[in-house]
Simulated assay, not measured.
Amino acid sequence: MMLVDDLRSGFVLAHHHPGLVLFDVLWKAVWLVLTMAALFLVAAWISTDLRGIAWEDTGVRALNGLIAVALMRDVWNLNREGILLAATILLVVSLCGWFFLEALFRTQFVGAGFMPAGIKIGAAGGFRFLLLSNLAKSLILVAAGFLLIPVAFAGAATIAGLTFLALGFLLTLLDTVIRANAVDLLGTDLFRVAGLLGILMLFELMIGASVVILLFTGLLRIGRPMDVVAMLVAAGVVVVLLNLLHSYLLLVRFSTIAIMRQNVIEV
């Protein structure tokens, strides 16, 4: 069977389960709400020192601004360690929440037996497996990014960028077949699996880049306060739509992988 046939079957299969796309977006919304709530609590704690400060309005807007900046600098100097510690804890908790929710929800997304008879996507190892898989992939990419930064500043930015993209593609390929319990496809259909992943990722990248360019063009035309509000609303809508697109293409990816694996088993 040709790659185009597998991909077409993957799209058809994904269209039968649109609820899974919303299910995948749900955990990101939950993470965002929890992160914003934690950020609000940290900001409320930091602002407790500001509530007790009283100062008179000078009637001069510029002078009021200078006084406010001086007060903020004093608060920063007095609470620098506490603010940095709170920000670090918030960042760590937010990242842990992202990995936890991703593994928890996608255990159902990847491992749910929603395929027709004989076709099933297996999340080998369940929650713990998906958690470790995403964590390992992210740590490798972060480490590679730090190692390639000096290379980029040394004048080889293009090489560093291409190397990072190639590594990201390779890790995504391995992560996909491992999560789908289809590692055997690397030996039987490596080029078709790589082609499938490349097509879907390139399509998503093109859509995302086009939308970002449109938003950037809109930012250059901002001239009134209402334009700023309109751009913020547009940016929010774009983020939601891009997340829906990513989840949909992810569902197509795992559906197609399941079909390809089933074809290999039948052969």
Results as ranks from 00 to 15, higher is better:
Ala70Tyr: 03
Ser94Gly: 14
Ala180Trp: 00
Pro150Glu: 02
Ala123Asn: 13
Val93Asp: 01
Ile259Asn: 06
Ile53His: 01
Leu241His: 03
Asp227Glu: 13
Asn134Ile: 04
Phe169Trp: 11
Met115Arg: 09
Ala38Leu: 09
Leu131Met: 06
Val267Ser: 11
Gly113Thr: 06
Asp5Met: 13
Thr176Arg: 10
Ala37Pro: 04
Phe114Tyr: 14
Trp45Cys: 00
Val183His: 03
Leu196Ala: 00
Arg73Ser: 03
Ala44Met: 11
Ala54Pro: 00
Cys96Leu: 15
Val60Lys: 07
Ala87Leu: 15
Met226Val: 05
Val151Ile: 13
Arg106Gly: 00
Leu78Tyr: 05
Val12Asn: 09
Ile121Thr: 15
Trp45Asn: 02
Leu34Lys: 01
Cys96Glu: 01
Val233Met: 11
Leu41Asn: 00
Ile159Arg: 05
Ala209Met: 14
Val142His: 02
Leu219Ala: 15
Arg106Pro: 00
Leu85Lys: 05
Ile213His: 03
His246Gly: 01
Ala117Trp: 13
Val110Arg: 01
Val238Ser: 15
Val151His: 08
Ala143Glu: 05
Ala68Thr: 02
Gly65Thr: 02
Asp5Lys: 15
Phe109Arg: 13
Ile46Cys: 02
Met1Gln: 06
Val233Cys: 10
Thr88Glu: 04
Glu204Leu: 11
Val252Arg: 10
Ile46Asp: 01
Leu245Lys: 09
Val239Pro: 00
Val238Gln: 06
Val30Glu: 11
Leu131Cys: 02
Val211Ala: 12
Val267Arg: 15
Gln262His: 12
Ile119Ser: 01
Leu219Gly: 08
Lys120Tyr: 10
Gly125Phe: 03
Ile67Leu: 06
Leu78Glu: 08
Asn181His: 10
Leu135Pro: 06
Ile140Trp: 05
Ala152Trp: 06
Asn263Tyr: 06
Ile213Cys: 06
Phe127Arg: 05
Val211Leu: 07
Thr158Ile: 12
Gly111Ser: 02
Arg51Leu: 13
Leu245Thr: 12
Leu7Cys: 02
Ile89Met: 14
Thr163Trp: 10
Gly122Met: 13
Trp31Gly: 06
Met206Cys: 06
Gly65Asn: 03
Trp98His: 10
Ser210Pro: 00
Ala62Lys: 06
Asn79Ser: 12
Gly218Ala: 14
